[in-house]
Design a protein around this nucleic acid. Sequence first.
DNA 1: CCCTTCACG
DNA 2: GACGTACGTGAAGGGT
Length: 929
Amino acid sequence: MPDAQPHLYLVDGSSYIFRAYHRLPPLTNRHGQPAGAVYGYTAMLWKLADGLAKAEGPTHMAVILDASESTFRNQLYDQYKAHRPPPPEDLVPQFPLIRTATRAFSLPCIEENGLEADDIIACYVTAAKKAGWKVTIVSSDKDLMQLIEDGVVDMLDTMNDRRIGIAEVHDKFGVPPEKVGDVLALMGDSVDNVPGVPGIGPKTATQLVQQYGDLETVLASTEEIKKPKLKQSLIDHAGNARLSRELVRLVCDHPLPQPLDELVLDGIPPDPLRAFLEDQGFKTLLNRMVGNGANGGAQRSGAVVLNPVVASAPPPPEPTTFDRSRYETVTDEATLDRWIAEARANGVVALDTETDCIDCVVAKLVGVSLATAPGQACYIPVGHGGGDLLSEAPQQLPMALVMERLKPLLEDPAVLKVGHNFKFDWTMFAKAGVEVAPLDDTLVMSFDLDAGRNPHGLDELAKLHFEHQCLSFKEVCGSGRNQCTFDQVPLDRATEYAGEDADVTFRLWQRLKPRLAAERVTRVYELVDRPLVPTIARMERRGVKVDRDYLADLSATFSTEIAALEEQVYEAACGPFTIGSPQQLGQVLYERLGLKGGRKGKSGAYSTDVNELERLAAEGVSCARLVLDWRQLTKLRNTYTEALQAQINPETGRVHTSFSLSGAQTGRLSSNDPNLQNIPIRTELGRKIRDAFVAEPGHVLMSADYSQIELRLAAHMADVPQLKDAFANGADIHSMTAEELFGTADRDARNKAKTVNFAILYGISSWGLAGRLGISKEEGKFIIDRYFERFPGIQTYIGETLAFVREHGFTRTLFGRKTHFANIRASNPSHRAGAERAAINAPIQGTSADIIKRAMARMDGALAAAGLADVRMLLQVHDELVLEVPQGREEEAAAVVRQVMATAAEPAVTLDVPLDVEVGWGAHWGAAH
DNA sequence: CCCTTCACG
DNA sequence: GACGTACGTGAAGGGT
């Protein structure tokens, strides 16, 4: 099973290439250039990526290189590395190829001016240790041996296939790793020109450090030294020894060039690697790549065939059956402590919270269930009974005690907590003062693996993966008027239900976790969705302030207007009817009033949608205009002004939406209860509702929007030079498109071009475009052909996307997010065409979603780092973030928000187009745009 | 529970 | 020639 603990592999690329050069014959590549060292390097990366993913495999990996000749060591000592001979002539051209090879493996390549690779490695080791990770340094450089720590940091010498731990360091230097620096300082290094002390080599250096403990003590104890020559040399060269100590000391506190998390390993995309191997003519490796047909699963998913082990991992062990009677009810301290110890020993625990209500902001905790292995689960009741005066509360541990005991476990960085839809549980614990970390969320995992393939509810997944029917909430709490809350459920029954949820969650985690790497969605899970779980939980809990009195006034105004319109409609329609019934309205218009042109939908009813009513209104049918106005006002009143007032939480005075992480197939969030992602803005009347969203006194609401992010991404992904240039130069993209398509950019042409641009994003069809533009389908086709002719990249993108989705059944975003399309091979042409349009759109919409999600995951940290910890991110509306900012801090906050959003793709993805962010603020949401 | 309509990106 | 009239959502109300 995958370890809860991340394991970082740091490859010392610079030192490797020198050793490879001397070890390997002077091979040349397909272009006749020397490539022996590069071949050795490529083979080594292959071995790492292939073999190591098996048992003690890396979860994160990076190649570290020397960036520059000059470092702080040259300032310390101008002779440092001064006598180093220049690298051999046929090695020099191979240096840049190291970066090419690394990129071909899709591995991060890290270098930093002023630092040697060793220092960067030391910085990452320090940071990873702090985060509770394990580290393996792939090198045999003796300087790096200073960093080794038992069970935490080791080294791997791939050339000799040997692990280097404390024992090996001791064998070599006779001292533990933390004293290696002192030994190195005394002995010096002729290659790097570290002076050391003349006459002292490895043997004497070791012996001195062993005897006196460290360099300073050696230098302070020269009186005791017997050998006169040694004694004098130490006295004469004490300065050099101290200088040498500084030269071999590794910098470990420099800011990381790339955050640790970004180094996550996510399989190896085959295409760039294949292209590189072909270009170099590395046939052996190439054949291994193509020839491995046994690993059908990985191939089908488009993964490289280097790592078949994870893909073919055996199914989880027994028991495969579920026995609810085995779950334990925990009502005493000793039993609680036993479960906590079990979870800690295990390193991973699944959990689920039971509450009296599904609204996490007001819910009270009723109990917690834990699972430490399949079938091994318990339930800890803390809030049962009590609410009901008739029945006595059952014996149970006090909530405060349970929380106090659980807190160290839930916050232990070495214990992974697993939940299904963890944001709910996270909030319940946060309300009790516990910040759960680290965590895995099986709902998010399922979504990242199987979006578009199956639903992701716990009960549905139990059925799908284990053919197990979960106890339903209804069976436990009843339904309708007889429904009770969970705190009223008897403990034995509650234990069965809650224990099962934790048990299923645990087994689901075992089943899904190995699939992340095998199906190459680790990156999107680790870098986009998992970090978002606590972020979303915080946003939901914060809520947004809504002005109730303002909404009530607005509602009253709307109601008066609606009543007046109703009278006018009845008059125009020659009698009353239910205006809100499309069926009745259709009959009134096309039968009673005898209007012509009634269009019927597939259900046989007249269509009365906005297009039809606009058409009638334009023909002078007064009733149609009145109905349109009536519809707008009732919509605004019923869906917004009335509903929003009812949604204000009495405790917080704010509205708390729920964001769904699995709501949209493309990876977007969705918002519900209430939906705050569809608050009106397009009409003046509707816009008034935005003014109801206000900031706390002393604060403003800030809105930050990505400008045209999807078109920018289309320009990047489809590689359209004109579009990329236009974005780079800040040009008006629709005018530019109009110029290309129609040779003019007047208002009419620009509007048409804008429609065409959107049509492209949505998967164009000539009929659809024709309908939108009110032109014939021939004209529509002409425009599309012209678009493809001017922007051939778009046509290629569409063609390649469709070819890929037809072959694999899914699309991917730039971050690797998969969306599956069940209908892509449907025999029904309209079903198939629908799936094709969605598949063209999904990578673009999904990449946009990935980017803003990364911005969100980073936002709180970036604000805190800038001293803006009291700026609070409240809402996300697909390409917009809404924040609450203390008055007087607007400019500072805007700068941080803009920076985080504009750079959110980096470093995982480098875009050819800039991301532009527009920021505004005001007393309310309406004024922030 | 399905359909239609309409609010948003 | 038929298909159906752009991608992704959630909520409300009518009708069955």
